[in-house]
Design a binder for these strands. Structure first.
Length: 279
DNA sequence: GGCCAGGCCTCGC
DNA sequence: GCGAGGCATGGC
């Protein structure tokens, strides 16, 4: 166990923020995460104290970076003083952070996401993991943690683990017409046409174009992958929710430029606020 | 049981 | 370049 104080960190909001599909809110003070081939549980202790169900070493090696704890989110409010909507969204969503998630997992997850509800995306991602991922045995945890929701979890499968998956198997996980897109993505990576290292080295514009070149990847999915996997935090994905906001409060379009590399964070606040704000 | 989902592809202009 | 139609399936 590792206990640490973290300002501007709300695991529950992150679980509901729609950027990750393998988070489970266990109760009001516990969430569990399957990522990086590992199981992690977080217990909320109050006063910005959190217990992580891992060693201090693993926290430093993996989760500190994963949860973007190297960025000071408390400064964001100062950037939006002339924007009433964003101010409300930031106050409501404070604690959300942009995760640094696995590149391959995000590409496939967001290809799946198109024209699907978040619960349906979660179902398909979990089915794919169960089918081809590696077993992760749930740890036995004591207070302040709670019992994991399952005994066995499955890592999100690598493209090597997916190399022989058939269109029929893909159909079986409920991805419908996206099966072909997923199969193409697997081939792109198996063949070496695309590699995560190669993509990581590109600048934003080049990366965007390469992602757009993939079958089943359009502007929205490319921006989500850039934001949630490559941590290109100037990316501003526009989906039906965001477009609804822009139509309602911004005359149909949004100038993200003033926000620089915090535009993607603002986008998350807007998305979360629009979905969960009380009427 | 019908409607819609964190869109994209193809076609026609 | 741009708008319209079609799209497999799961949740609610």
């Amino acid at each position: 166990m590792h206990i640490i104080n973290i300002p501007c960190f709300d695991p529950i909001k992150i679980a509901d923020s729609g950027q990750a599909f393998r988070y489970v809110k266990l109760d009001d003070t516990h969430v569990e995460v399957v990522a990086k081939g590992k199981y992690l549980q977080i217990a909320i202790l109050g006063n910005d104290d959190f217990a992580f169900s891992c060693t201090a070493q693993e926290f430093d090696d993996i989760w500190y970076n994963y949860f973007n704890l190297d960025r000071d989110y408390s400064k964001l409010a100062d950037m939006i003083k002339d924007d009433d909507y964003l101010q409300s969204a930031e106050q409501f969503g404070r604690g959300i952070r942009i995760l640094r998630q696995d590149i391959w997992e995000m590409i496939i997850s967001y290809i799946i996401s198109q024209r699907k509800s978040i619960p349906a995306i979660t179902t398909s991602v979990n089915r794919l993991s169960t089918l081809k991922g590696k077993e992760i045995i749930a740890p036995s945890l004591e207070a302040p943690f709670v019992q994991p929701s399952q005994n066995i979890y499955y890592s999100f499968p690598t493209y090597e683990e997916l190399s022989d998956i058939t269109l029929e198997e893909l159909a079986g996980i409920g991805v419908g017409y996206r099966a072909e897109y997923i199969r193409c993505a697997i081939d792109d990576f198996i063949s070496g046409k695309l590699t995560t290292d190669m993509l990581s080295e590109k600048n934003d514009e080049e990366l965007y174009e390469l992602l757009l070149g993939m079958r089943g990847v359009g502007a929205k999915v490319a921006n989500c992958v850039m934001l949630f996997a490559f941590h290109r935090t100037s990316s501003f994905p526009i989906d039906v929710w965001i477009q609804r906001i822009l139509d309602k409060y911004y005359g149909g379009s949004f100038n993200k430029n003033p926000y620089g590399d915090t535009a993607g964070i603002m986008q998350q606040f807007m998305f979360y606020y629009e979905r969960y704000k009380p009427n």
